[in-house]
Amino acid sequence: MLGSHILTLILFAGLVSLFFATLSRDTLREGTRLGSVMFASMVGVSLLIAYLMYFFPLG
């Protein structure tokens, strides 16, 4: 699992989102909402950048 790029990204995004959601929100509902948005943003933006990089030639 730790050798997979995408699973490492999901693991990192999950841990950081959970951390910031807990740190900056006091209720479960608000925390869940912020954490979900952060997680989706991190994974989504990373995949978008990865996709855009596909068009650049290697080397």
Binding site: L2, T8, L11, L15, L18, F19, T22
Partner: peptide, 20 residues
């Protein structure tokens, strides 16, 4: 409640890093 989450997240992040 927050302290349990913080302990879990920070130590897991640290040890995942070492495992990698």
């Amino acid at each position: 409640a927050k302290s349990i989450i913080f302990f879990a997240v920070v130590t897991l992040t640290f040890f995942f890093g070492l495992a990698m």
